[in-house]
Write a protein that binds this DNA or RNA. Structure first.
Length: 472
RNA sequence: GCCGCUAUCGUCUAGGGGCCUAGGACACAGCCCUCUCAAGGCUGGAACACGGGUUCGAAUCCCGUUAGCGGUACCA
């Protein structure tokens, strides 16, 4: 078998959609699995909607996800001459013909067809022009597009994910391959490029299934072997409709902003519509590549479940060493205007298992660094009310007890002993001592163990916050 | 309308004729651990769309129905 060559071919007309990212991921995985080549081709032939900014966003998104390409980015817009020449070759060979129908005429035909309830299919009238009629139109200098003569008969292929898919040539019409301005239509550009770039496997979205018979017709017209097609299912929103802005975050960049780790995103995306078989959920890159196969791709569309993504992100957050999280956390903190010269590593370690996103991590660190002033969250307030006077009283006692520990002795082990001793001596439940301290330090009732929290916040700051909370 | 694709817990999925009284994960509920929360452990509820075949035997194979989705451009 020839060396695998695959491509991801987005059009830069919007942001990098998670569906596109997953298509890219599958291509990448397949290339890495087979030792093939993965190339990136930007399909910017739609000049109206394509922008450089969008191209950059796509490039950034792929880089963020760690999806690396071996060739490209290639810009389809640069291959116009070849596209045109290919169309003209087909024309010269009689496999395509000039169509002089105007847009208005076509629209009228379409409207008429819809009225009678039938499907509009170009009737091929310009393909039946006599040599004289053709010559006449040419002499009058009428603009024309070029249409492919669609052969009758079956057009079928063995899709790597769906199995055999079959269309009938007579259900398809003689579609335009070159516009009257000499620019190519998508299907021509794709086939021309895929042939030129020696693409062996076309892995793309399900929505291209209906383009495939047209493209196969083109391969046949060019007398080139067609590649293997693998059509991956769509990604849906939680209402079962195609994922769109309406559903909230759909762009890869949105998840980056939300504090999702690229590794978690990639892992999640890989498992959306693909399964290695068995029970695997967390897949390191090497295993993902090792296990990847086109056969493992699901036929049906998948609903994008943000909750599971966040769970997975939490798994990565817990498992990753603090220094792997340092850079993004620092970025987030500086975005919030939080400045510190403290070593963030212990802070990250303290909060990462309790976080689902990097934004959570940064938020919790900020509280440990700066406190929340006298602001308490709802649970903090509730606890204070429940305890009544004991809240302040216990805090004062804790303050007195903890003050006896000097900076040298301010360690998790000593702090735990000190607090347990206090609780025992006073005949109080440990929680009635610990929880007020937690509220004093964080404003809430959730954190790492209090003795650790005290060391993370630091001696002076902790004592100050305890005193402040006791006084109010 | 026409063409095509798809159909297992709410969601992601395992399953490719007997191993299935259908397994795992997320979410949910309960319990354990425990100074709280997370993590972790245990337990529970929760699905083979429907109808016909084929077969000794179907979640698995075939046909139909229904539903959902995609396409139906001188867009990509």
């Amino acid at each position: 078998m020839a060396t695998v060559r695959v491509r991801f071919a987005p059009s830069p007309t919007g942001y990098l959609h998670v569906g596109g990212a997953r298509t890219a991921l599958f291509n990448w995985l397949f290339a890495r699995r087979t030792g093939g080549t993965f190339l990136l081709r930007i399909e910017d032939t739609d000049k109206e909607r394509s922008t450089e900014a969008h191209t950059q966003v796509i490039l950034d998104g792929l880089e963020w996800l760690g999806i690396t390409y071996d060739e490209g980015p290639l810009f389809q817009g640069g291959f116009g001459a070849r596209h045109k020449a290919d169309a003209e070759r087909l024309l010269a060979e009689g496999q395509a013909y000039r169509c002089f129908c105007t847009r208005e005429e076509l629209d009228a035909q379409r409207a008429a067809a819809e009225k009678t309830g039938g499907a509009f299919r170009y009737d091929g009238r310009c393909g039946r022009l006599s040599p004289k009629e053709l010559q006449d139109r040419m002499e009058r200098g009428l603009p024309f597009s070029i249409r492919l003569r669609m052969p009758d008969g079956e057009i079928a292929w063995d899709d790597a994910v769906h199995g055999r898919i079959s269309f009938q040539g007579h259900d398809l019409d003689d579609f335009i391959i070159l516009r009257s301005d000499g620019t190519p239509i998508y299907n021509l550009a794709v086939v021309s490029d895929d042939i030129e770039m020696r693409i062996t496997h076309v892995i793309r979205g399900d929505d291209h299934i209906s383009n495939t018979p047209k493209q196969i017709a083109l391969y046949r017209a060019f007398r080139k072997p067609e590649p293997i097609f693998a059509h991956v299912p769509m990604i849906l929103g939680n209402d079962g409709k195609k994922l769109s802005k309406r559903h909230g975050a759909t762009a890869v960049g949105d998840y980056q902003k939300l504090g999702i780790l690229p590794l978690a995103m990639r892992n999640f995306l890989a498992l959306l519509g693909w399964s290695p078989g068995g029970d695997r959920e967390i897949l390191p890159e090497a295993e993902m590549i090792q296990l990847f196969s086109l056969e493992g791709i699901q036929k049906k569309p998948a609903v994008f479940d943000v909750t599971k993504l966040e769970w997975m992100n939490g798994q990565y957050l817990s498992a990753l060493p603090a220094d792997a999280l340092l850079a993004p956390v620092q970025r987030l903190l500086s975005q919030k205007g939080t400045k510190t010269d403290r070593d963030l590593l212990p802070l990250i370690d303290a909060v990462k298992t309790r976080s689902r996103t990097l934004t959570d991590v940064a938020g919790q660190i900020e509280i440990r660094l700066n406190g929340r002033g006298s602001v308490m969250d709802a649970k903090g307030v509730a606890l204070k009310q429940k305890l009544g006077p004991a809240f302040s009283h216990n805090l004062r006692q804790a303050h007195t007890a903890l003050s006896t520990l000097g900076p040298e002795d301010w360690t998790p082990a000593n702090l735990e002993v000190e607090l347990k001793t206090l609780a025992e001596k006073e005949g109080k439940k440990l929680g009635d001592i610990m929880q007020p301290i937690r509220v004093a330090l964080t404003g809430g009732t959730v954190s790492e163990p209090v003795n650790e929290l005290l060391t993370v916040v630091g001696r002076e700051e902790s004592l100050a916050r305890i005193l402040a909370a006791a006084g109010t």
